[in-house]
Amino acid sequence: MTKANGRVYSDNRNIIKITDNKKEFIDLLLLADEQENMVDQYLERGEMFVLDDNGIKAECVITKEGNGVYELKNIAVSPDCQRKGYGKSLIEFLFSAYTDCNTMFVGTGDVPSSLTFYKKCGFTESHRIINFFVDNYDHPIFEDGNQLVDMVYLRRER
């Protein structure tokens, strides 16, 4: 991994840290968290990265939650680019870039496709926040045809 002009090169994919005008990249983030005011709660305090492989294919936002503890608040891959390793590349990049990260959490809906993805990336189930999606969103949220109710938190240890 090398750095040049604000760009980070990893696995032949260009991962760029976005420091200004993060809202320009909101459309892709809204695929993973479809209510903009929820994204706004973490967007500015988090660090954003986009993966550019002849165009933006994926992006993520990560926050520092404590000493050695980070949370992957949002990770989204363009629908036509899913299952090509872009999401996993971003997660692996974060673990290599944040050398002080001992524990990374991620919260997601209780659907097999998401849980399987994170487990393939080395995460295990940690805890749940009951009724998170029902209590915090102004409309029902659906993924893979299922209404999301509880937030499932997963963790990965270094």
Rank of each mutant, 00 (worst) to 15 (best):
T2H: 13
K3D: 14
K3Q: 13
A4V: 15
A4E: 15
N5P: 11
N5K: 14
V8C: 11
V8E: 10
V8H: 15
Y9E: 14
D11S: 10
I16C: 12
T19N: 15
K22A: 12
K23S: 15
E24V: 06
E24Y: 11
E24D: 15
E24N: 15
F25R: 10
I26D: 11
L28Y: 12
L28E: 13
L29F: 15
L30Q: 11
L30H: 09
L31G: 09
Q35I: 11
E36C: 02
E36S: 09
E36A: 12
N37W: 12
D40R: 02
D40C: 02
D40N: 08
Y42E: 03
E47H: 04
I56F: 04
E59K: 07
V61Y: 00
V61M: 00
T63D: 03
E65S: 05
N67I: 09
G68N: 03
G68I: 02
Y70T: 04
K73N: 14
N74S: 09
V77N: 05
S78W: 05
S78C: 07
D80C: 07
C81I: 01
Q82E: 10
Q82H: 07
K84Y: 10
G85I: 02
Y86W: 09
Y86H: 12
Y86K: 01
G87Y: 00
K88G: 09
L90W: 04
E92K: 12
F95R: 11
S96M: 07
T99K: 12
D100V: 06
T103Y: 08
F105P: 05
G107S: 05
D110N: 15
P112F: 00
S113W: 02
S114R: 01
T116L: 08
T116R: 10
Y118M: 11
C121Y: 02
C121A: 13
T124G: 06
S126H: 09
I130A: 08
I130C: 06
N131Y: 11
F132C: 04
V134R: 11
V134Y: 07
Y137T: 01
D138I: 10
P140I: 07
F142S: 10
D144G: 08
G145N: 10
N146M: 11
N146L: 13
V149P: 02
V149G: 00
V152P: 03
Y153L: 13
Y153P: 08
L154P: 07
E157M: 12
